[in-house]
Each structure stands twice: as structure tokens, then as C-alpha cells.
Design a protein around this nucleic acid. Structure first.
Lengths: 213, 213
DNA sequence: GAAGTAATTGACACATGTTATAGAAATATT
DNA sequence: AATATTTCTATAACATGTGTCAATTACTTC
């Protein structure tokens, strides 16, 4: 990395750190570009040079935290694809729980920003990941052969994103959100699964419904 | 209505008409409070006095058009509650189809506004309506007795709102959106329905899946 | 070390949603 | 009819995200 790139990386990191600090200690409303530049010790223009927009800074914060539905993307060579799908929910929940209000406010800001491409990107990513996992579940026989994995994968991802969106708006707590998604997913998976896994999914569904309230 | 209220109503109507005209002929980006006030022939403050915020003007536009998932709310005394649920989708589709780009841009603007309460309100309304219809379907025996109608109703509403949200972001076309919701709803309903209605729902489900693509 | 290049800075500008203030006009109350 | 209240207008202001542009600084290349 050339020294120029190095300097840029340092500035990028300082800006992220400053954004993080402002959100944590002063709240999202106080995160203005002027305040951010001040705390990071750079000029007002620099965040724009390095990130593009305020929304892009927030996206970088989430990326830095390795979110972005990463659990859904984990390569999966062995084990049950359905278990993997459901396990991903638990990972997402744990991740958000680690600092719920922090991630909630960032997530909301991104989802309501006037840069629609920020939304589209995460929608597309989630749909692709979910379609992949569903296809694996079909291949492994957990879901019936005739299942349209593109359609089902899209359905699951949409449901997840919708609930996350409502969590972002403060409509659900993190725990409620994931329980909501889990029962929603199970209801649909039950309809597409093969007889072998049906009993265990049905149990899981009953549990999930009770866990909601 | 006192003459004062009358005057307010007239101004309100003029502002709505102006907003409508701007969105239709100049596009959502041109809908600024200054342009709106100018075209409505009122001062910049008046829309704030009469509506509260720009978002509230947009909400009024949708309300005026009798949207807000009104079809879901129709009182239902007779006929099949499930048919009513599915029929509501068709009505929503027809409504949006009547001027897709117009409603899409308004819907998106509301859903991405920085007034989160606007979002919460429409989420709450949709969930309540849907829970009511599901409860009726349970009462009539179309859905099995043990169905948790609050939970299922919430699930259906969330899925609808999820897809509408993506339609708002331009991710789906109107037709695709509703087809997506219909098949999603049918999959879940199939899992909760009584044996009497299962065959017809299964048929509808197959049709809906083919209609997507 | 000199010349060229890329990034940063600073000061300013603009459009926007929103609020403030003061005064004018219309309406309601007595 | 006189007074009080409500609403609207006009104008200015503020905070914010973002853009412009010239000057400067730091780095790369030769």
C-alpha cells in the first residue's frame, strides 16, 4: 500500500471512529457531517472524498462490523441447509443484541436515506444468499424437489428484511423481530419440506409461535 | 362547520391539489415546500399549519385517495374470510395500477421520511386489519381452531408490507408485488387451513406460483 | 532534488425542511 | 359595533447534506 493509500486508510478509520463515537455518546441526531469532520479532525469535504456520502459512512460502519447478513453467506459444505438458515437468524440476533440501539439507529438511517441504491444493494444481497441456501436445501432433499428455490428464497429474504425494517423503525425489539422471522420462515418452510424433516420443523414452528406472544 | 374551518378545508384541498399536480407533472423531486406553497397560492407556513410536515401532506394525499389498505378494512358479514383476504390484494393491485408511478413515489417518500411515526401508523393499521380478518376465518372454520390469529394476522400483514416496501423502492413492479404476496399468503394459509378449504387453496397456490416467474 | 500528481483544505454557496417573528386580515364573541 | 381570537402572510433565519473551486500540502516519479 502506497503512503497515499495509507494516509487515506488512516483518515477513513478516523472518520469511522468519530462517527462511531458520536452515535454512541451523542446519538444519531448529532451525527452531522460538520460534527463528524470536526471530531475526526478532517475537513468537511474529506468524508465525501473518502466515502461519497453520509449514507456511505454509515454503510462502512456496518461493513466494518461484519454485518450485512454475513451469517447467511457462510459457505456451507455439510450439515442441514435448513438448520443453517435458521441458525443464521440466531447469529443475526446475537449480533444486533451486542449493541441493539447502536445498530438499530444505523440500520434505520441507511434504510431511510435518500440514496435508494443503498437499500437495493442490501435487498439483492439478502435475496441471493437466501436463494442459495434454499437451493442447497432442495438439493439435499430437505425441501421437496418441485420447490422453486428462486421464489422461495426471495420470499424468505423479503420477510426477513421487512421485519428488520420494522425493527429499524422501532416497531419491534430485536428479540421480537427475530422470533417473528423465525416463525414466519418455519410456516413457509413447512409447506415446502419433505416428509422426513416435517415433524421436527413442525415442532420448531410451535415453539417459535409460543416464543412470540 | 364554522367559516374558519371552511377556509381551512379549502386551503387544505388547494394544497393537496397542488401537491398532486406537482407530482403528476413535474415529478416527486420537484415537490418542495416552497414550490407547493407557490402553486397552492399560500404562504410557506400554511402547509405546516394545516398538515404539520411535508410527510403529512403526502399521507393526506394517500388518505384522500382512500388507500391505506382500505380494502382490508371492509366490514365483512358474509362470505369467505379467506376469499376476502385474497380479494383485498386484488383491490390493492387495481388501486395502485390506476396510477402506479404516482402512488409508488408517494409511498416511497412516506416510508423513507424522517418521521418514523408515519411508518409505524401504517404498519399498525395493516396488522390490525389483517388480524381481524384472520380471526373471522378462524371463527368461520376456514382456518383451524388452534390457529393463533394474532400471530398469523401479523405475519400476513408484515409480508404484505414488506413487498409493498420493495415495490416502493422500485424493486418490484406492482403486478409482481401482488403476485408475490398472494403466493406467500397462500403458502402460509395452506398450513393453517381446515381440510374443507385445502383443495381450493392448493389450486390457488399453484396458480399463484405460476403467475410469478 | 525537481516536476508532476493526487488528496486535503477552506471558504463559500445552494437547496431544502423547518421554525421564528411580527404584522395583517378574517372571523368569532360580546 | 368593539374587542378578542385565530389564521395567514411575508420575510428572515437556521441546520443540514452536498457541491464548487482555487490554493495548499503531501506524495510519487523521474
Amino acid at each position: 500500500m502506497s503512503r497515499r493509500e495509507e494516509a487515506k486508510a488512516i483518515n477513513r478509520a478516523r472518520i469511522c471512529a468519530a462517527a462511531d463515537a458520536i452515535i454512541q455518546h451523542e446519538g444519531m441526531e448529532k451525527l452531522t457531517m460538520r460534527r463528524l469532520a470536526e471530531l475526526a479532525g478532517v475537513s468537511l469535504r474529506t468524508p465525501y472524498n473518502l466515502f461519497g456520502s453520509k449514507t456511505d459512512v454509515l454503510i462502512a460502519l456496518l461493513d466494518e462490523a461484519e454485518f450485512q447478513l454475513a451469517p447467511l453467506r457462510v459457505a456451507q459444505d455439510q450439515g442441514s441447509a435448513i438448520a443453517h438458515l435458521l441458525g443464521a437468524l440466531g447469529k443475526i440476533e446475537a449480533f444486533f443484541d451486542s449493541d441493539e440501539e447502536y445498530y438499530r439507529s444505523i440500520y434505520e438511517a441507511i434504510m431511510t436515506s435518500d440514496h435508494p441504491e443503498a437499500r437495493s444493494t442490501s435487498v439483492e444481497r439478502a435475496i441471493e444468499s437466501s436463494q442459495l441456501l434454499v437451493a442447497q436445501a432442495v438439493a439435499s432433499g430437505e425441501l421437496r424437489r418441485e420447490t422453486d428455490s428462486r421464489s422461495l428464497g426471495r420470499h424468505l429474504a423479503i420477510h426477513l428484511l421487512a421485519v428488520l425494517g420494522m425493527w429499524g423503525s422501532g416497531f419491534f425489539s430485536n428479540g421480537q423481530s427475530i422470533a417473528q422471522v423465525r416463525s414466519g420462515w418455519l410456516a413457509v418452510l413447512l409447506h415446502h419440506c419433505s416428509e422426513t424433516v416435517r415433524p421436527s420443523l413442525a415442532d420448531a414452528y410451535r415453539e417459535a409461535c409460543e416464543a412470540k406472544g
